[in-house]
Design a protein around this nucleic acid. Structure first.
Length: 255
DNA sequence: ATGTCGTTAGTATAACGA
C-alpha cells in the first residue's frame, strides 16, 4: 500500500500537476495540504474521475487539507481537538483500508517570536496530546503532512539564512522530537539515515536549481506499522515541473 | 535585506502569507 503526503500549494492552480502525478505515482492514499480553496471549490469531480475518493476541509485563500484514497474513506475527524476556537483548516482524519490516516498542516509560525509562533507551538502541543491518544488506542496510524519543522541541521541545505526562521527554532525541533519519541517512526529518516530527503524548496533565490531544500513533510508511523515499512521516497522531479508547488510529494509503501 | 508566487481588495497597486 502506497501512502503519500503532498503540500499542493493551491489545489485548483496545481490541478494539472496533481492529476499527472497521481497517474504516474499511483498512490493508494494521499494527504494534501494548502488547498487554498473553500469547501465548495474543491475539485472533487476531477479527482473522482481520476479514481480517487476524497475527504476535505477547505478554507478560502489559506490552509485547507484533504485525504484522497482509492478505497472509500470513513471520516473520523475534521479538526484537531483541544481548541474549539481554532477556525483554521489544518487537520482531517479518516479510516481507510484498515489504517487510520491523520492529514495535518502544521502552522508555519513566522515571524518569530510573536502570536503566529505561539499558535504554532500551541498547535504542536495539541497534536502531541492527540497523537498520544492514538498510540494508546493501539490502532495502525499514519500521521502525514507538512509539519513546518526541520528536525535537525541535516534536514536543511544550510542554516545560514534560516537561523531566525520558525521552521528551525529549538522550540520547534523540541516539539517535533517530543512527538516522535512518543513512539512514532519518522519513515523517510528511518529508511534513509544518510540522505537529506528534502521535500521543500523555496521559490526564492533559485533554491530549486541549487538544491537548497528543507525536509519538512513527514510521514510518522505507529509501532505496528513501522514493521511494515518497505519502501519510501520523495518525487523530487515534480518540484521541477512547470507550474509546480514549492513542495514535492513524499511517500512510503507498507507491506 | 533580499528573493518568488499568488491572492485579496478593488481597479492600480500594495499588503500579506508562505
Amino acid at each position: 500500500m502506497k501512502i503519500a503526503t503532498y503540500n499542493i500549494n493551491n489545489v485548483n492552480r496545481r490541478l494539472p500537476n496533481l492529476l499527472a502525478w497521481l497517474k504516474r505515482a499511483r498512490p493508494d492514499i494521499v494527504c494534501l495540504q494548502e488547498l487554498k480553496a473553500a469547501d465548495e471549490a474543491f475539485p472533487q469531480a476531477e479527482l473522482r474521475k481520476a479514481g480517487y475518493h476524497a475527504l476535505w476541509r477547505g478554507q478560502k485563500t489559506w490552509n485547507g487539507v484533504a485525504i484522497l484514497s482509492r478505497k472509500p474513506p470513513i471520516l473520523t475527524r475534521k479538526a484537531l481537538p483541544g481548541d474549539p476556537g481554532d477556525t483554521q483548516s489544518r487537520y482531517v482524519e479518516a479510516a481507510i483500508d484498515g489504517l487510520l490516516i491523520g492529514c495535518l498542516y502544521l502552522p508555519n509560525g513566522n515571524p518569530q517570536p510573536g502570536p503566529k509562533f505561539k499558535y504554532k507551538l500551541d498547535w504542536f502541543r495539541r497534536l502531541q496530546t492527540h497523537a498520544r491518544k492514538l498510540l494508546k488506542s493501539g490502532a495502525p496510524v499514519v500521521l502525514a503532512g507538512d509539519y513546518n519543522a526541520v528536525p535537525t541541521d541535516f534536514d536543511i541545505y544550510s542554516m545560514n539564512s534560516w537561523k531566525d526562521d520558525a521552521l528551525v527554532q529549538p522550540q520547534t525541533r523540541a516539539a517535533y522530537a517530543k512527538l516522535v519519541t512518543q513512539g512514532w517512526t519518522d519513515s523517510l529518516r528511518a529508511l534513509f539515515p544518510d540522505k537529506p530527503m528534502y521535500t521543500f524548496w523555496d521559490y526564492k533565490r533559485r533554491r530549486w536549481e541549487r538544491d537548497a531544500g528543507l525536509r519538512i513533510d513527514h510521514l510518522l508511523l505507529s509501532p505496528s506499522l513501522s514493521t511494515r515499512l518497505k519502501k519510501g521516497g520523495v518525487d523530487r522531479e515534480e518540484r521541477g515541473r512547470e507550474g509546480a508547488s514549492d513542495h514535492a510529494p513524499a511517500w512510503i509503501e507498507l507491506r
